[in-house]
Amino acid sequence: MRFLVTAIVAYLLYLLLTIGSGTLLLWNAAELIIGAIFALVVAALVKNRYLKRSLRMLNPVRWFIWFIYLFPFLFAMAQANVDVAYRVLTGRINPGIVKISPKLKTDMALTILANSITLTPGTLSINVDEETNDLYVHWINVKPEVLKEMPRDYHPICNSFPDWARRIAG
């Protein structure tokens, strides 16, 4: 079942990317055959990982929240790049690795958070503790006063992205 769904999704994606390549219903024969072969290979490779406990992501409310999330995310991404440009030009950095405990439960939420952290100002996710779901984050401008309190508040490090990830896939 998983195998079939994965293969069909992969095949549809391939067909979308090669649309308009020929006369056989918009595609040419070679593309159709190669696409089918690759879809089967991909499905065979990932069938045990893909779709694992991810039926909750079919809820349209979560998609809507995800769409809303794009706006603060894209803003933070632009900010992050200005920040990197500033640090490249001035050299004002104080890097270090810190640990945050976002208390997320699902793999999907953690994936969203880790990718968001990498793309947003000053932080880069490096490692995940899979038992406690803690993230190890490389922070390019460590503020020592934030590290003193234990349990550590993650808001100064990565804004409210853990909250967003929890809302989307928590």
Partner: peptide, 12 residues
């Protein structure tokens, strides 16, 4: 690690 910052964010 700092270089990874530059590549990860700005390049994206």
């Amino acid at each position: 690690y700092a270089r990874t910052h530059a590549v990860g964010k700005s390049e994206t």
